[in-house]
C-alpha cells in the first residue's frame, strides 16, 4: 500500500473535456431519437408491434440515458453520490405515500427534483436516469423512461440555478413547463414500446383521443400534456415545501445552493419559510 499525498490536486481539464463530450453525445442520442420517431411515426403504428420504431426508441433513449450516467456519475462528489440512493428511495416511498392520498398523479420524481435543486442539473439528470434503471429492478416497465426522467432532473436543476425556487409561486410554474417537455419526450416511448399506457386511468384518456381518430402517438402525447404538467407542478411545489423546511445549515452545505443562490432566506430562513405557509 503506497501512501499517497494528504492533499488533492486540481482536476485536469482533459478529463473534464471527455466527460463533457459524453454528456453532449448522450443529449444528442436522446434528441436525435425523438426527432427521428416524430418524423417517421405515421407509417409505423399499424406496422406491428415488433416494428423498428420500438427498437429505435428503446435503444436511442437508453443509450442516451446511459451515456449521461457514465458522463456525470464519476464527476459527482461523494457527498452528492450518497444522496442519489436517498433520492431513489424518496421517489419510491414518498411517491407511494402521496400517491395513496392524492390519487390521479404518480409523483414519482420527488427525490430526483430534490437532488436537482440541491446539487444541480447534472446530478439531477443522473439521478433521474439512475432512478429508472434501479427501479426497473422491481418493475422493468420503467426502464425505457430513463431518458425522460433524466430530462426532468436536468430541467429541475436548471430551474433551480436560474432562481425559479427563490419565489415560492414560481416553483409550480417551472414544474408545469418541465412537465410539458418531459411528457412530450416520453410519449413516443409509451406509444412505440408499450403501445399504450401502463395505467387504466391514463389509458381511458388515451382512448378518448383515439376515438376521435387521433394517431396513437398524438393521443398519448395529448394525454401526457394533460397529466404530466400538473404532476410535475405538484412535485416541484412539494420539493419547494421540503427544501424551505430544511434548516439553513443543511441547505447551505450544498455548494450548488450557495453558488447560485438557489433559495431565498438570508435571515435564518424565516421569510422564505413564511412563503411556504399555505401548507399548514
Amino acid at each position: 500500500m503506497s501512501s499517497p499525498s494528504l492533499t488533492l490536486e486540481s482536476p485536469t481539464p482533459a478529463a473534464a473535456r471527455k466527460r463533457r463530450l459524453l454528456e453532449i453525445l448522450g443529449a444528442l442520442a436522446i434528441a436525435g431519437t425523438y426527432i427521428y420517431l416524430v418524423l417517421n411515426q405515421p407509417a409505423d403504428i399499424t406496422g406491428g408491434p415488433g416494428s423498428a420504431s420500438a427498437l429505435i426508441a428503446l435503444s436511442g433513449f437508453l443509450v442516451g440515458a446511459v451515456l449521461l450516467v457514465v458522463a456525470v456519475l464519476p464527476t459527482l462528489p461523494v457527498s452528492t453520490l450518497v444522496l442519489i440512493p436517498v433520492a431513489l428511495v424518496l421517489n419510491i416511498v414518498l411517491g407511494q405515500f402521496v400517491g395513496s392520498t392524492l390519487v390521479p398523479f404518480y409523483l414519482d420524481a420527488i427525490g430526483t427534483v430534490l437532488i436537482a435543486v440541491l446539487a444541480g442539473p447534472a446530478a439531477g439528470a443522473a439521478t433521474g436516469a439512475l432512478s429508472s434503471i434501479v427501479w426497473s429492478f422491481f418493475n422493468p416497465t420503467v426502464l425505457p423512461f430513463a431518458a425522460g426522467a433524466a430530462l426532468i432532473g436536468c430541467l429541475a436543476g436548471l430551474a433551480a440555478r436560474h432562481g425559479l425556487f427563490r419565489r415560492f409561486y414560481l416553483a409550480p410554474v417551472a414544474g408545469f413547463l418541465t412537465g410539458i417537455i418531459g411528457g412530450v419526450v416520453s410519449a413516443p416511448i409509451a406509444a412505440f414500446v408499450f403501445g399504450g399506457t401502463s395505467g387504466l386511468a391514463t389509458g381511458a384518456i388515451v382512448s378518448a383521443f383515439r376515438s376521435m381518430g387521433d394517431s396513437l402517438l398524438a393521443a398519448i402525447t395529448k394525454q401526457a400534456l394533460i397529466s404530466d404538467p400538473m404532476d410535475k407542478a405538484i412535485v416541484f411545489t412539494l420539493v419547494a415545501v421540503l427544501v424551505y423546511a430544511l434548516p439553513r445549515r443543511t441547505r447551505l452545505q450544498f455548494p450548488f445552493v450557495r453558488r447560485h443562490r438557489v433559495l431565498t432566506g438570508q435571515a435564518a430562513g424565516q421569510s422564505a419559510g413564511a412563503a411556504t405557509g399555505q401548507g399548514s
Binding site: 499517497p4 499525498s5 494528504l6 492533499t7
Partner: peptide
C-alpha cells in the same frame, strides 16, 4: 506534515481517503 489554512481558495485541499 503541516497544512496551513487561511480560509481562502488557495488553501490545500485535504484528501479524505489518505487522511
Amino acid at each position: 506534515t503541516r497544512l496551513l489554512f487561511t480560509g481562502k481558495a488557495a488553501d490545500p485541499r485535504i484528501n479524505p481517503g489518505s487522511w
